[in-house]
């Protein structure tokens, strides 16, 4: 029999180290045993199967597909009601690509998903644009906004690949909100020629920068962080 020199407990004959403190077992008397004792537990790990994601994706796809087919048929039978089923089908397709399509992948591919989501969103907006026969706003407003949003997402995917501190994540998200609001404001005002390039986004970005300032203070001041975690612990 062996004892842990650190904990004082007797260890199982098969133990290579103490189960309580991981101190290695060194017992010269028990090294060359002819019939070493079997460990108390088998090494077989049984990981129960979870629900198949592909199966769930298939069920959801069917649930989405059936009302869409019904809508298309009804719309074809009643052509004088307009082409409203296009909106239903386009919206369903967008939902499918955003939420169901990722379940079909066995591994996560964030860059592929981001590219697919960007293209799908642009196509979705383009359908509305084409059906309403308004000129200009798709290429001058929708494309720049979707492109910037995708770039922000791309940056976040890359940046969050390493483990980041919650305070720094909050600061980056706030900076991105400020950037996106200013850009949206500028693009919309430029398109509609309102005379002011930036107006509505000012309170949003000022609030964001004030919060960023607060988080910078939190990040730098250890005592303040300790006080916050003591006051706000859950």
């Amino acid at each position: 029999m062996s004892y842990c020199v650190n904990c004082g407990v007797e260890l199982d004959k098969s133990a290579k180290k103490c189960a309580l403190c991981a101190t290695p077992v060194v017992n010269p008397n028990e090294k060359n045993e002819e019939h070493p004792q079997a460990p108390p537990y088998s090494s077989t790990l049984v990981i129960p199967k979870g629900v198949s994601r592909k199966y769930v994706a298939f069920i959801i796809s069917m649930v989405i597909l059936i009302p869409n087919i019904v809508c298309v048929i009804v719309n074809l039978l009643l052509p004088h009601t307009g082409s409203w089923s296009v909106y239903v089908v386009a919206s369903s397709a967008l939902v499918w690509f955003l939420f169901v399509f990722p379940s079909l992948m066995s591994r996560s591919h964030p860059y592929i998903l981001l590219s697919v989501d960007t293209v799908t969103s642009l196509l979705y907006i383009y359908i509305f644009y084409a059906l309403n026969k308004q000129e200009g706003w798709f290429s001058r407003v929708a494309v720049p906004l979707v492109a910037l949003f995708s770039l922000i997402c791309l940056f976040m995917v890359k940046w969050l690949a390493k483990e980041r501190d919650g305070v720094h994540i909050a600061m980056v998200v706030l900076a991105e909100i400020a950037l996106f609001s200013v850009f949206t404001d500028a693009v919309v005002n430029y398109f509609y020629v309102t005379g002011r390039l930036i107006f509505v986004s000012i309170p949003v970005s000022v609030s964001c920068f004030a919060l960023i300032g607060f988080f910078v203070f939190v990040a730098k001041n250890k005592r303040f962080r300790a006080w916050l975690s003591q006051k706000f612990f859950v």
Partner: peptide, 20 residues
């Protein structure tokens, strides 16, 4: 686990450990 079993050992009780 360590605190618990070593507390027993400190009180003079022999403990034999088995684990997975």
């Amino acid at each position: 686990e360590r605190d618990f079993f070593t507390a027993l050992v400190k009180r003079g009780l022999p403990v034999r450990i088995e684990s997975n």
